[in-house]
Write a protein that binds this DNA or RNA. Sequence first.
DNA 1: AGCACGCCGACT
DNA 2: GTCGGCGTGCTC
Length: 615
Amino acid sequence: MYADVAFPIKLPPLTYKLPVVAPPDMEGRIVKAPLMGKSRYGLIVAVTDNPDFKGKDIKAVQDIRYHFVSGNGIKFLKWISDYYLAPIGIALKSGFFEEAVKSEVSGQYPAVGEKIKEKKYETFLFHAPSIHAEHAQLKEFLNSDVRGVIILAPEINEIERIAPDLKKIFGERLCVIHSKLTKAKRTDAVKKIISGESDIVIGTRSAVFAPLKNISLIAVLGEHSPSYKAEESPGYNARDAAVMRGFIEKACVLLSSVSPSIESVYNAKIGKYTTLNADSHPETKRPRIKIVGENRTKGKASTIAGEVLKEAKNTISKKGKFLFLINRKGYSLIRCEDCGHTVQCKKCGIPLVFYKAKNAVRCNYCGLEKNIPESCEECKGFAMKPAGTGTEKIKEEVEELLGTKTLLLEKERSLSPSPLPLAPDILPFVVGTTYAAKKLRDEKFDAAALFNIDQTLSQPDFRAYERTFQQVTQIAGTINPDGSLFLQTWNPKNRILRFIKNYDFHGFYDYELSQRKMLDYPPFSKIVLFNISYKKGINLSDDVRNMIEAEEIKGLEVLGPVEIPPILKSYPRCIQILLKSKDSRILHSYARRLLDKLEKIKDVKINADVDPLKV
DNA sequence: AGCACGCCGACT
DNA sequence: GTCGGCGTGCTC
């Protein structure tokens, strides 16, 4: 007997010999096996009589340990590996394998014999009228005899908000998993799950891999959130993975959000998901959304529109709280008034941000900081002036025009988990990025103004409208239901803004779905994005083009290759290819083959992103 | 992941 | 000349 062993590294499973007297249930067991002269722990993912590997000496496994992954668990890991075009070892790494190796579990077999209730797979989509309603719906799915639950939250903040309530219901059965846990704490949590001591898991995206023996419910809060997409290999989307895991485990899946994703709404429309309606939460009052035209007066006009200022003054007199939001850090950008060129980071190719207090420009990507260039690198002119608006400038304007101090709140680079500033009690005027809105969600501001909705709307990405809608809905949730949210725009007649103003989700979904259908974008097609980094010298672009042209596939669209700025150091060039198809099987088999071919080329690094969020 | 091998820059 | 930096390749 032979076993295919996956190691938690970028490597396909390797074949090892099993001892003659091996326990019967080898699949899913942790084993020690020799690898490059050392021994390492891996997981048996398959058992065979005649191995594929035709090498001369097949080594034997050295130690057989406990049964960590069930048959369903292996199915899930294989799905992740297959669907996201990553070696199973990398999926295993995401699946808490290293923590499991450290866990000494008493008794080799999982506790069987526990009566498992008759289970059926079903995914529900709940479009929540408020965060409160979203939590209430989750609690309806949870009663104290429910066994085996995974609750996913998009961010750690969110976990901290719900965990205390769950602790009250489940006590020691509850366990928290997220990336900010120390190694020891994470191992502890995994241990508790494996031993069965803990069967209610709440966590961020990685918790979808929680090694529960039985799962009856997987809940995904804020299911639209881009945080569910892992950047690092295997680039999984935890929401989609949750649905697949639920399907495999015959569990119930609850997707919920105050602004569900287009994909999920579509899946509900075609009957893949069951819609839960919000009847039990009638007439939810929401803050009024006001669309305000930008100040069109030339010259020294302020960024903040008159109507917003008026409301802000009103808020002061009522001793209320006002939130000013703009998704751009720093004071402004620096632009040449002669030719319109914006000062950019040479390395990263993105605009450098002007910080007034430091009197310097800085790249928010690589951290480069330098003095403001005196002359334009394009036209050599000397008309370098601040242009555009960031948080610092809004802060300056608010303080000047309203004669009040404000708190600036934005996400700092590599900031250790910051304590929640209780400033709104002391400083009722807060300026910040949307990070501030999230952080201060429970403060219930009386009003808020968002200044850069036009940029959000005009991002060159097919999901720009969807993201804008979600962002505004999110911000609206942080405002008093009697309050107002001002959206400043150059295009007050914009169609999307009108949907937003009226909280017209149905109108928006219908419109957006018709657009996506017309242009063959997801959810009407599936996409895979390839980034191919390579060294100078090779004419890769042509090679790839030939490779693609060698094989024309019906029902598959190949866009590119296009040259993009390099993403990896020591690989100075990069090209991008977008694969698109209505048939996900065609797409996947082609993507797989293309990836295999490309990986054989020397001096080339490939990154394949399945279902990318940013295109 | 780790470990060996190999190819270019600094230095006894 | 060679010591050693890390970038690349291989592991049943």
